[in-house]
Design a protein around this nucleic acid. Sequence first.
DNA 1: GATCACATGTAAGAAGTTACATGATTCT
DNA 2: AGAATCATGTAACTTCTTACATGTGATC
Lengths: 185, 185
Amino acid sequence: MVKPNRNSTLAFALLGLIWQEPRSGYDLRKFFSSTPMISFSDSPGAIYPALHRLEQRGLVRGLVAEGLRRRRIFELTARGRAEFRRWQTQPVVRSDVVRNLDALMLRFAFMDQFAEKGAALRFLKAFHKELAAYIPSLRKYLKSNREYMPESGRLALENGIRAYETQLRWTKDAMATYGQTKGEG
Amino acid sequence: MVKPNRNSTLAFALLGLIWQEPRSGYDLRKFFSSTPMISFSDSPGAIYPALHRLEQRGLVRGLVAEGLRRRRIFELTARGRAEFRRWQTQPVVRSDVVRNLDALMLRFAFMDQFAEKGAALRFLKAFHKELAAYIPSLRKYLKSNREYMPESGRLALENGIRAYETQLRWTKDAMATYGQTKGEG
DNA sequence: GATCACATGTAAGAAGTTACATGATTCT
DNA sequence: AGAATCATGTAACTTCTTACATGTGATC
């Protein structure tokens, strides 16, 4: 049995975008298909049911827009904002680093807009810590097994390690950015 | 309606590992939980049903192992090998680069073992080409929108671009590795 | 007048998640 | 004897995918 009301990554992407500004399902589809958020599905069979679920759960409210075409503009409810913030400020855990990097980056992407000041920096520190703890375990595996691995398998693992290292460097650079901003403001 | 028999990424991971050597469901779970392939789920609720589907589709064959505990060791059928190879040597398409990098790397990871000589290099070339075509579109979006983006959103996008650039550099390095090997052999 | 973009929806099916369930064997 | 590990499974539920369906308004 699945825990009720655990919203999907797509659901949170929708909440974030709707919080930025009220949008229709069609707006959201177009946003996904025309920006780097194209990594989300823009299919109507994903978006519309997801919006209906969010509405049933009281996280968004759909308003029929006056205009020529039938169109529903969604906006966040207070519960929707609370739920989004709760998700966004959850601890950064290993399992997210290993299996859900995209969700982690989505949480960060909306940090400046919807979380309290300081949340972004706290997030980056926690993220950095988890990455720094995880990478050595990958290196260790590579070291112990490189001789028994086929070349393409080894290269694939090296690619994974590099990807995490890039992520690690990014967290440091991003932290520096926030440090600067603090000094300026 | 969904196309029948389109195996999931998990299904292909199972096929690849079973092709390496016959394994039980339990072996596969342990492999996922104890190696960098931990990005796959090791839950019995995912693995066992997936194995049953593969068996129903005639891609694997389960043999009851003699021994103390009841245990089923799976091995690939000829159809399983053909299906895996077909998947592995599919063209590298943009949509995989955008939404399914993991599957792409999984395909590559088994390339030396199960694909014909030269497949790895062809794969890397195609992968490189797609990455080189995709990255500028991300840069362009960043350039046009950076002033309207919140800082964390901009940083998240920069992270995505860096990740793809790292991937691109890796494809070049990996191609060089294969070039050398050719010279040696 | 036809085609394209706007706009929303549903149906069928696949596959994953969490949780529960069961029993054997080995270790302490 | 009790705990841990080996080993496999199912049930309920959620969400996604592909495909089909429908109608309006704008453009050529």
